[in-house]
Design a protein around this nucleic acid. Structure first.
Lengths: 213, 213
DNA sequence: AGGCTATTTATACACTTGCGCAACAAGGCC
DNA sequence: GGCCTTGTTGCGCAAGTGTATAAATAGCCT
């Protein structure tokens, strides 16, 4: 009677990606507790047993999912930096603006970020994954700041540069959180405008006169 | 043979507090998944069944625990504001400094904050608890900023005041996160110094000349 | 001292969880 | 077309979960 369920064989890489995506969806929607193997499998359109065919256990699946998440986030963030024919200051502003708008400002992404980070205390592997992503981000910020200041003919020493990067990183992170948690409290582009202004104040840049370009 | 375990009767308020503390400890250490009734009870020095005597269910226990956490955090933060015989600017600096040092900068507190916030997406009660705490904090910031600017004989309109408060809030939050996640990367007092400087730049305050007081 | 009652323990239960394993069938290969 | 590999299913299991409830006892009242 009970006909066995029909199925398709997918390529290995495709299946793994689907499972990772289903994991992130489940964690975002139900939290780590609700992200059971059965929930994840259901969302991926397979049965729970299959997961063990691709991952040694649930732990490893979660870790790979978090790594993938961090990778996508930093990738998107850095993408805003590749602008040709733009002044350092414009590139910095574009970087900040990109980080303070969709798709980086997003409830789901924030939920994932917070959920995984909450476990970073107990799980060294998660902590390391975060640390690497964070340092990469801050290095990126520091590099752009150095260019901006150089264009202004200012010669900050290493400590000053580091402190600027820390402060700017904090401004972006803090505004990102506010935007993710309460998007409806801000008009479109408002967060980015606040961020750019705050960062230019931090760097002591004179306000832009008139329109850009 | 199996002697029944000895126990002491505690006052109701005391027991509830102990259970809430044990819950926060468990969540911080093992995450929401690992914070089972048995784990919590063990840490509180009672048996699991007792929890149901004080809370309708696990859900309510977690919610009360989160409310207690947020309450303590904002309480500590605001405590730094009650300084008599201090200029608005000194009070603002003290506020920032208090928020960027122990005990507010603390891995455990951050872990709890992130863990609960990760579930705010799915749990409206948690989301509301956070929203209220956040808005209270920002109002506090806005009030101090207004005083500081008034002392400088500046008359910001409501929108400008709001944007300053948003930016300053972001700076504090962002630096708080950096400090919690990587305390060993900063020398003592460094985060607070960076924060105060960044905020004074945001408000366009001239740097302090010479030593304070 | 002795009982009363609410706090606390202990045990049971239905359910879910991650994992192991054998059967099955999809799709490439000869 | 038939076979063989292996991706995939389906089911079972032991451990652990939150909840329910009965039995015990600590500590106050008289």
């Amino acid at each position: 009677m009970n006909a066995r369920r029909k199925f398709r064989r997918e390529g290995e890489e495709r299946r793994r990606q689907d499972l990772i995506d289903a994991t992130l969806d489940s964690v975002a929607e139900y939290g780590l507790q609700g992200a059971t193997l059965r929930t994840i499998a259901l969302r991926a359109g397979v049965t729970a047993g299959l997961i063990r065919h691709y991952f040694p256990g649930k732990e490893e699946l979660l870790q790979e999912a978090y790594t993938a998440l961090v990778g996508r986030m930093t990738e998107q963030a850095k993408a805003a930096l590749v602008m040709e024919d733009a002044s350092p200051r414009q590139r910095l502003a574009a970087f900040v603006t990109a980080n303070l708008n969709a798709p980086i400002v997003d409830r789901r992404v924030f939920s994932l970020w917070a959920t995984f980070l909450g476990r970073a205390n107990a799980d060294p592997a998660l902590a390391r994954a975060h640390r690497e992503g964070y340092l990469g981000f801050r290095d990126e910020v520091e590099a752009v700041v150095a260019e901006v200041l150089a264009a202004e003919r200012r010669k900050p020493d290493a400590g000053e540069l580091r402190r600027h990067a820390i402060a700017i990183n904090a401004i972006i992170d803090g505004l990102w959180i506010e935007g993710c948690l309460a998007a409806e409290m801000f008009s479109p582009g408002e967060l980015a405008a606040i961020g750019v202004k705050a960062i230019e104040a931090e760097l002591g840049l004179a306000p832009e006169k008139g329109g850009n370009q």
